[in-house]
Design a protein around this nucleic acid. Structure first.
Lengths: 345, 345
DNA sequence: AATCTCTATGCAAACGTTTGCACGAATATG
DNA sequence: CATATTCGTGCAAACGTTTGCATAGAGATT
């Protein structure tokens, strides 16, 4: 089964020289005479010699593996972020290892526990929605493994962070709904311990406050998950209540799409009877009828920046205690599920 | 910066015993007396000792890293397949490394070239659409690195393969369109060297043949890519021709969705004027209006099976020359973009 | 008292690579 | 001709771990 690879020793034996000479020849060491170098290089090429990364890493006490921990990769959000990360590391000597936590704190902690057995150079993590405790992250920091938190903030935990300005994104979206004439704006929110959800909720609340619109508890409904199915029940609740809203701001596109279909089913006209704005701008969101208005996030860039920061952390020499904190701006994308602002033209 | 980890030697020094004894104590070697074992284990626990995977792999001449090469992870298809793969390996000692080829043969070959520097235990690959040459895969096989090809077949290249019965999936879909009364069925296909596309095309052709419907070249249009945008032009071409089809079978959901929107824009009624069937059954496909009829593929299971076969290949002892060839069945999912079969009730 | 058998532990080699130091030979300088 | 310098190469250690073999000490048998 196992055919062993060509090693430096094999080349040395064949050429009747020492392993050190082979090693130096391959590195173009100036002290060697060129005939030796050439002989070595020719044979190395012919035998398809590849240095053993494990031996090197052992010697150097380093690793070239980066771990990326995400809650899920089937959502466009994280798969695009991972693509951004990958696109940075692909041209480096590092390899990325993707780990999926399935939005579970336990799995996330287990992943980190397993990672500590393997040598890793650094970790990028978008915490699971059920992660409330950060000791597993602290353990990494204590072992001097650079850690970058992205997308989802861990409040009260210090680390390098790359986030999106969810608050402003939500604020802008809700304020737009108000300007377009909506007065009873509901919000479908998600898991309450996720910073992204909370910031969007706060943006929603503050936009209403600023415009002197009362905040109604009955108009803030929490969906039980992130998928399409999870949007049906909250929407039905809203549209069958005795205080029917005239707009829904959903915490993500999937829930917004689901709200849209549910509203249609209940014979609401969109956006006349009920306007809808989502969050994420997934690639297919513009293909619904009407096309979904939503808040775009620079996911790919966020992935790239996170990766760049990690790379810098791994390679920097000086010890520094300062943590970077980067926040990306969102963009409101207006399409068919929101009304136009009156008299804007 | 670098705080070195606790090693077996550190423990040995502290306890004034040899490294071998520590190693044996941690493995519960029967020759050691229990006081020694306990002392070692207690200290190892206290100091949070973790074996150095690199040293072990170097010693054993093995690796616990599996590479997964996919053309793209932002599509639901591959992200779901990768999730299936991950779910198998997560409970094993292996870690997976995700590599993205961006549908490019060059990048794919480069990835394999880079992988050969790192020690890897095995490779799972869904070849890029531009991959016509398989020498990079052969190189892996020559080095005894187990290789599994999934989703996309490489005709003329022998390896373990886990595929989907695209032919039957397409055949069924087209035959359904015929049974529901369509007679002028067009097909939007994709890159012509992709086995999946070709098998779907062949399924389309054979379904027409079987039902004595002439195959019109003008009704087979190749989209230039896989994204939504790539579906617009082919659809316009079809619907503005002087031989307008009454159904479109698209090679994937994205193109189908795009065809749907384009048809709507041109005032066609769906499915009365033009029926549409896609391929993939992406999670949001049922949320369009009308909901998209499509062909479901067991992607997640395909990922899992591929991973299981690889695991078996890596761990098996005996050399065997036989390649496994697994084919999954698809399922036709009928929703709003296709007509009902007359008199079926 | 001499030999034998356990028991518990240590030694050293091995995995593949790099690199500081040393060394022999050839060449240059006095 | 003796010494110094340069050139090309090899030795050995190091990284962390495992494991076959050796061995020291204790107790048992003759």
């Amino acid at each position: 089964m196992k055919k062993t690879r060509v090693t430096i020793k094999d080349i040395a034996r064949e050429l009747k020289i020492s392993a050190s000479t082979v090693s130096r020849a391959l590195q173009d060491h100036p002290a060697l005479k060129k005939e030796t170098k050439e002989a070595v290089k020719t044979l190395a090429e012919k035998w398809n010699y590849r240095p053993n990364a494990m031996a090197l890493n052992l010697l150097r006490q380093t690793s070239t593996t980066i771990a990326v921990i995400v809650p899920d990769i089937t959502s466009h959000f994280f798969s695009a972020a991972v693509t951004g990360i990958q696109d940075i590391f692909v041209s480096s000597e590092y390899n990325i290892m993707i780990c999926i936590s399935n939005e579970s704190y336990e799995e996330e902690a287990l992943i980190i526990e397993n990672l500590s057995k393997v040598q890793i150079a650094g970790v990028l993590v978008a915490p699971a929605s059920t992660t409330l405790d950060f000791d597993h992250f602290r353990k990494l920091q204590k072992n001097d493994i650079p850690l970058i938190i992205f997308d989802r903030d861990c409040e009260g935990f210090e680390a390098h962070k790359v986030l999106v300005d969810d608050y402003s994104g939500a604020f802008e979206a809700v304020e737009y709904l108000i300007k377009s004439g909506c007065r009873k704006i509901a919000h479908i929110t998600g898991a309450s311990n996720l910073s992204t959800n909370n910031h969007r909720l706060q943006g929603y609340i503050d936009a209403l406050k600023k415009n002197n619109i009362p905040i109604l508890e009955e108009h803030i409904i929490q969906a039980s998950g992130f998928t399409h199915e999870d949007g049906i029940q909250p929407t039905e609740l809203l549209l069958r209540s005795n205080n029917i809203p005239d707009a829904i701001f959903a915490v993500n596109d999937r829930l917004a799409v689901s709200a849209m279909r549910t509203a249609k089913k209940l014979k609401f006209r969109i956006p006349e009877d009920i306007a809808i704005i989502g969050f994420d701008d997934e690639p297919h969101s513009s293909y619904f009828t009407p096309a979904l208005s939503t808040v775009w996030q620079p996911v790919y860039s966020m992935g790239m920046l996170s990766a760049r920061i990690l790379l810098h952390e791994i390679e920097k020499e000086e010890e520094s205690k300062e943590f970077r904190h980067e926040v990306f701006k969102t963009e409101l994308v207006l399409r068919g599920t929101s009304k136009k602002i009156q008299g804007d033209f």
